[in-house]
């Protein structure tokens, strides 16, 4: 079987689902961040795969570049938030950050 678009899409779908699962269930804020990175990688893989097989251009790769840039910015800010959270409640467990509880 020739390795085609569907293969990449499947890998990407698995990565996405795993990332989503991590975001939904992990308790540690840093782990949630890792889940988000997995999701972003899944999206990137899709961009590049479509760019190779469907549009035959390079714009998909450029989108991936921008996603990486934003992921870097997002990671920096998210970690700053986690550190600020840690300073305030002495924990990185998202279960304890529930000041909005009704």
């Amino acid at each position: 079987m020739i390795i085609g678009l569907e293969h990449y899409l499947f890998i990407s779908a698995i990565l996405f689902s795993l990332g989503l699962f991590g975001v939904l269930t992990r308790r540690n804020a840093v782990s949630i961040l890792m889940g988000i990175e997995l999701i972003l990688n899944a999206a990137n893989l899709n961009f590049v795969a479509f760019s190779r097989f469907v549009t035959i251009g390079i714009s998909g790769q450029l989108f991936a570049v921008f996603v990486i840039i934003l992921a870097a910015a997002e990671a920096a800010v998210a970690l700053a938030i986690i550190l600020a959270l840690y300073q305030n409640i002495k924990s990185v467990s998202v279960d304890e950050a529930d000041a909005m509880k009704g």
Binding site: T25, R26, R27, N28, S31, I82, L83, Y86, S91, V92
Partner: peptide, 17 residues
């Protein structure tokens, strides 16, 4: 860095409660 700077990392339960 985030893992190391937050000391109690290892105490936190893995899955959300």
């Amino acid at each position: 860095f985030g893992v190391m700077l937050t000391r109690k990392v290892f105490d936190v339960k893995i899955f959300s409660g």
